[in-house]
Design a protein around this nucleic acid. Structure first.
Lengths: 156, 156
DNA sequence: GTATTCGGTGGGCAATCTGCTCAGCCACGG
DNA sequence: CCGTGGCTGAGCAGATTGCCCACCGAATAC
């Protein structure tokens, strides 16, 4: 569960150059191959590293528009709404949250016009009372994890 | 730029079993190894696949609390705020958005109490007028891309 | 109608890496 | 003082990679 400095360096290395193998990584880190192998196994069974899935860019797939929708849910309809949203491919992510609104989801669409279609599809469900949408213009900080890993591995 | 059915199957396969190599993938897909190699090269230079970085779970790193903060920015301070937020490791993602508020960011923290520290750090900057935060309770749909890939590859 | 190009196939080759095992070391805790 | 856990360096057989080639069918250009 704890992440030591070597783990941190390993993760950062993997994040920067995902294609390197265990052997090359061990050379870069200056440790034995077995060590890297053991660390990677441990990090994965720990759940620190969930996997190495391909990072797909929705924009390159033809979905350049991203938006966040905050949804207000009718009491007791949470499970149904979850199930509904899970069936919509354009819903990339869904959270239940505190505060105004009960859920927040990340959407993508082919265009601003298409976003309307997606939103209609999303909110066209009985349990959803209200939805407010914010369209993403820029993404100055794309999803990142390296700084956090470095921080976590330093205060060991 | 277009994603055909084979591309779709390849991406889905990679997403499900990231560790398989080109050779194994070609066997699963029933095509020649060279074909898989060519497709992967193309997908990557297209930008459809950004890379294969490790997916790190912040919770396993000791940051189990996630929150979304909506920030209101003082006119003309956008760039400074971006730069400021980029220095905070707990800021995993930042978007500029339309609607109420000007930016939205995803935060993580070690605990609810620690979240206060993170928020103070985030909003303790001159260009930020106001911030409202929503804490994530559940994540019924974790960030996913497979359904979208399937959809995109089908309507070819 | 014919030549060209493009994407895919199937094969081959040397170099490299992987998975696994083993013995030796060292530091830490009981 | 011994056991355990983590790291090292080494070895080995088997699989994979990167790269090359010739061939083929379909679509495209001339």
């Amino acid at each position: 569960m704890a992440i030591d400095h070597l783990d941190g360096r390993l993760i950062v290395l993997l994040a920067r150059e995902p294609r390197i193998g265990v052997l090359e990584a061990s050379r870069r880190l200056g440790v034995a191959r077995g060590t890297v192998q053991a660390r990677m196994d441990r990090l994965q069974s720990n759940g620190v590293i969930r996997g190495f899935g391909p990072e797909v860019d929705p924009a390159a797939l033809g979905y350049p528009v991203t938006a966040f929708a905050t949804l207000e849910i009718k009491q007791g309809q949470g499970a149904d709404v979850r199930a509904h949203l899970a069936t919509v491919a354009e819903v990339l992510e869904l959270h239940t949250i505190t505060g105004h609104g009960d859920m927040q989801c990340r959407l993508v669409a082919r265009s601003n016009a298409d976003l309307q279609r997606v939103i209609d599809r999303v909110v066209g469900f009985d349990g959803i009372v209200r939805a407010s949408t914010a369209i993403v213009m820029e993404n100055p900080v794309p999803l990142r994890i390296i700084p956090l890993v470095e921080q976590a591995s330093e205060d060991t």
